Simulated assay, not measured.
Amino acid sequence: MIDVAALRALRSVATRGTLARAADDLGFTASAVSQQIKRLERQVGVPVLAQAGRGVVLTPAGQAIVDSAPDVFQALERCAEAARSVADGAPRGVLRVVAFSTAIRGLLAPAIKELQKRCPDLKVHVTEQDPDQALHSVDAGTADLALIHDADGLPAQLPPSMTQRHLHTDTGDVVMSRTHPLAQHEKPLASEDLAGHAWVTSPPGTVCHQWFRRLFANAPEEPEVRHLVDDFATQLALVEGGAVLALIPRLARPPLGDGLVAHPLLRQPKREVYAAWRRSADASPAIQAVVSAL
């Protein structure tokens, strides 16, 4: 019979392309993953991987096994859920959640505090991961629940084995010092109101930087960016000096001190936040409890 851990290892190697990357995903050493693959080859009697430069590729036999793996994992998970449903259905055990940082701050942390009171037998373990990596972790079975957001207005591409539920719409505001000339502005800020002011922004490649660039998409001049900082608390420290503005998502925003104020935008940037899990885990009391709390 095929060993489930070895099957999971082969699937991770197929997705990640190397033994080392698969080992990082699974929390093993590359040597341990290699041993699992060799055990799988002994069990099926044929090679499942072949060398390709510094990486590896699946043999036709290996590809056939990987193609069948989701059915195996879903069947095993349905067995486990059936066993849990025989009990009282109370959420218990460990639920592994992977989520992007601002969802951890704004959604998960408050929910966990309440869940500890309602579900004392449930432990939520949280790991920070970007949405693409989080989806892979849940699909591969190394996590149970992912919190993800859309990418620049485009929904994330879920594997067929997964489902999702909308949780939250996150929006961005402009944060400034109370001494800043725009601080007394009574209406939502338009792009033209922001012209000529200096900024601290998140680095290129982040959602918040995309939001910032979109603010000035039709502006005649490039905005003045003085600082590129990924940490929002650090952005606020720079804003408090009074010389720069920041565009910060509400989920990510630490409490504002007395010296800061947040102003909404006329065209608010937004992103949709979803919970995603394997369809075979739909009946999980733990997943349902956490999603309900979120």
Rank of each mutant, 00 (worst) to 15 (best):
A52I: 09
A20R: 15
R84F: 09
Q235M: 12
G257R: 03
R226L: 11
D3Q: 03
P188T: 00
E77Q: 05
A237T: 13
R271A: 09
K123L: 10
N218M: 07
V200A: 09
R271W: 01
A6R: 07
D71W: 11
L228I: 01
D150M: 01
L49S: 08
H166E: 14
T201G: 02
W211V: 09
D258G: 09
T234F: 05
A80K: 11
A64G: 08
A134C: 02
R213M: 01
R105G: 08
F73L: 12
V290Q: 07
W199L: 00
Q184C: 10
G27H: 06
P47G: 08
R279Y: 02
A293W: 07
A195S: 10
L158F: 02
C208T: 14
M1Y: 03
K123I: 13
L107D: 02
A286D: 11
H180D: 05
D152H: 15
V57D: 04
D231W: 02
A143W: 03
P285I: 00
D25F: 05
E222D: 14
A276T: 00
H166M: 06
R84A: 13
A75Q: 09
K113C: 02
I248Q: 09
H168M: 08
T179R: 12
Q235F: 10
F28N: 13
G141Y: 00
F212Y: 10
V200I: 15
L182R: 11
A195E: 00
L122F: 04
A246D: 01
A30N: 10
A22Q: 10
A275G: 07
E221L: 13
Q36T: 02
T179M: 03
E224F: 08
V44Y: 06
C79D: 15
H180A: 09
R21G: 00
G205M: 00
P155F: 07
D3A: 04
R278G: 13
E114K: 14
G93V: 00
E192T: 04
K123N: 12
A80S: 04
T171H: 06
S85P: 02
D121E: 06
R21D: 05
T142V: 13
F100N: 14
D258W: 06
H149N: 13
Q116I: 05
S34G: 15
E186H: 15
I148R: 00
H136P: 01
A52V: 08
S280L: 01
P204E: 03
L194W: 00
R8H: 13
L145R: 05
I65F: 01
P249L: 00
I37Y: 12
V46N: 06
S68G: 09
S280H: 04
T29N: 07
L122D: 11
E77H: 05
V97A: 08
S137G: 08
A140D: 10
D139W: 05
G153Q: 07
P220K: 01
G172V: 04
V261D: 06
A217N: 14
G27W: 11
A134K: 09
G45E: 01
T127F: 11
P159I: 03
K117T: 14
A283E: 13
A246W: 00
V72E: 05
A109E: 15
E272R: 13
A52H: 13
K123F: 07
A281Q: 13
W211M: 05
A103L: 00
R78W: 04
L215E: 02
Q43G: 11
L26V: 01
T234G: 01
I37G: 02
P203G: 03
S161F: 10
A217M: 15
L147C: 10
L256R: 14
